[in-house]
């Protein structure tokens, strides 16, 4: 499971970047597979794939029973790669996440037992039920893509993606994620209730057996690495880069926000935008990508002013309004 060489695959000259058509075909295949389980939520599925290709982590937030875990599992299962699931509980220990060194009687030596994060896809269920100490252990791994135990640093494999689910913070028995930790998630997505038809279809489909069990992998870790590599090649013009920064700056100036977007959010917005462009089979990023993704990438990072909260404004609304104030650049191709 220990795979320090996994990262090397990316720079391996043998792994030629995929063409954009191949990217679209592959991602379409994965999305189609997931949608067999998650009905009526194509945009959520799409966002999950975008975040994966952007080498980010996804926070799925919603009430119980709307399919948060199912989405995470379906994505994990669609890719033939290592998948670990951690059920966060208040008594979960940091070592359960990262791993622990145990004394091997036979070799008379300490041996590292990797924790749950040593996988390509880690599904963290109900992350806000764990104690802050355990939460931060996971979050460190997410940011640095490495684990340090007893002074030894272990790299995590690529792709590495954490799909954490979270109940709304008002629920009982939760430790809300601090904003500094929320910032590590690339995007937050809300599942939302399925519409009537999707729910009826779900009832008829899920009645006999769990379709999740029948889900076959349609991609591999190797292919996902190639996809990620292809995303790197997507072109971003100076004008679009400037536009992105303008949007982030506008959130910092907005009178309705106490805390605007961080530089990390700029970076992650750019990465997701590139991933989305690649998903669309486009070799360049458009302001449209940024406008669409800002609603998922930014709201969980910003903090609203009390006035805006009293006015019952949601962070998504505020971000949408902020974007409407930023003029789209008309810079010429470079």
């Amino acid at each position: 499971m220990l795979s320090r060489s996994a990262l090397g695959d990316l720079d391996d000259p043998g792994t030629a970047p995929l063409g954009l058509d191949a990217v679209r075909e592959a991602t379409g295949r994965i999305a189609g597979n997931i949608e067999r389980v998650i009905e009526g939520k194509p945009e959520v599925v799409r966002l999950a794939i975008v975040v994966m290709l952007a080498e980010g982590h996804l926070l799925i937030e919603d009430g119980p029973g709307v399919g948060k875990t199912k989405l995470a599992k379906a994505l994990a299962r669609s890719i033939d790669s290592s998948v670990r699931r951690i059920q966060f509980t208040p008594d979960l220990l940091p070592s359960d996440v990262t791993g622990v060194s145990v004394y091997n009687q036979e070799t008379h030596d300490f041996e590292f037992k990797p924790g749950a994060v040593f996988a390509n896809l880690v599904v963290g269920d109900e992350i806000n039920r764990a104690s802050p100490k355990t939460q931060s252990a996971l979050l460190e791994c997410m940011e640095e893509q490495q684990v340090t135990v007893d002074g030894t640093t272990y790299r995590l494999e690529t792709p590495f993606m954490v799909l954490a689910t979270q109940n709304p913070i008002e629920m009982e028995g939760t430790y809300p994620l601090p904003e500094a930790q929320r910032d590590r998630f690339t995007a937050r997505v809300s599942m939302g209730y399925p519409d009537v038809y999707a729910e009826v279809a779900m009832l008829s489909g899920h009645a006999g057996s769990d379709p999740l069990d029948e889900l076959k992998p349609v991609s591999s870790a190797h292919e996902v690495r190639a996809l990620i590599h292809a995303v790197h090649a997507v072109h971003v013009s100076d004008a679009v880069r400037k536009y992105l920064v303008d949007v982030i700056h506008a959130t910092r100036r907005s009178p309705e926000l106490r805390l605007g977007g961080s530089p990390r959010s700029s970076l992650q917005l750019l990465r997701t935008a590139k991933a989305q462009a690649a998903l669309a089979g486009r070799s360049y990023v458009l302001p449209d990508d940024i406008q669409q993704l800002a609603g998922s990438v930014l709201p969980h990072r910003v903090i609203m002013t009390p006035e805006a909260q009293i006015a019952r404004r949601s962070a998504e609304q505020v971000i949408t309004d902020v974007i409407r104030t930023v003029p789209v650049p008309r810079g010429t191709a470079d």
Partner: peptide
């Protein structure tokens, strides 16, 4: 217009 604005020169 979109390509003229944002795409790399080769695809503009």
């Amino acid at each position: 217009e979109e390509r003229a604005r944002y795409a790399p020169q080769a695809q503009a």
